[in-house]
Amino acid sequence: MYKAAQRRIIVPFLAPALVLLAVFFLYPLIKTVDLSLNEFSRTGTMRFVGLEQYRLLSGDPDFYNSLKNTFLITLIGSGMLFPPAVAVAWALSQRIHGERFFRFVLFAPVVLSVAVVSLLWKFLYHPTLGLINPALESMGLGALAKTWLGDPATALAAVTFVSVWHGIGIWIVLLCAGFERLPEDVLAAARIDGAGEWRVFWSVMMPMMRDLLRVLVVLWVVQSLQTFAFVYILTGGGPFGSTDTVGTLMYRAAFERADFGYAAAAGVVLVVIMLAVAKLLNKVMKRDDLQY
């Protein structure tokens, strides 16, 4: 009976959000699929060309290169993001000294605009005037000095690092909220059973956070597969395409060449890939039958 009553609230609860989504998102997205089947002039007149844009896309080495880079950013970025973010959130959940202060400070970079953060890091990375290379040299590690953004071997990681540095506060806030909500009695029980802190963290906390972590990983993947802003400002996709992402590729197609059909096709492929990866991740990270 309660179940039946519950059912009655489904529609009114969901409807407002879905209406907004339908008008401002789904409609433009469906339209995008339509755009991808056309060829455009700069003035916006279009001509139906069927799957031609997809054919062009599949023969474009720049597209494969940008896909590869996009996946690399997602992969490298998750390595740079999650271990420290989880550790920091765990630390904050222990309410160590200065917890409030740290919480505040860790979040602060998020508030800075992408433009300012990029300018800051361009200077930090600067090969001769910067801070990183001179610091390495002064520590006698001059051999490690690199032209960070100018070296195809390091540029991608350098750009990814900046974007992780800027956004990590958000992930920490979400993870903290997860840690805060862990039932204290379960943790206490584990500790009474003689589990060390590390064990409590690894075998009790992490499994309980699994749903949240899965959500966050999917969010990260979906977000980083669309990486655009930092790449665009820091390297513009260079040196020679080594940091070019699907985002920057689409931007060039749409905004420099006014080739909306091509950009839309790339966008559609990207959305399909994101859906597939998200689904795969969910399968892989699906909860085992855990009891706690």
Binding site: L14, A17, L18, L21, V23, F24, F25, L26, Y27, P28, L29, K31, T32, L35, G44, V218, L219, V222, Q223, Q226, F228, G247, M250, Y251, A253, A254, F255, F260, A263, A264, A266, G267, V268, L270, V271, M274, L275, A278
Partner: peptide, 24 residues
């Protein structure tokens, strides 16, 4: 399915969707 629709909302290729959005 509905949750899937919301998830797709995270995947906006804004470089492209902005044009139809402007028109609507």
């Amino acid at each position: 399915a509905l949750l899937g629709v919301f998830l797709m909302g995270l995947m906006i290729p804004w470089m492209v969707t902005f044009a139809p959005l402007y028109l609507i």
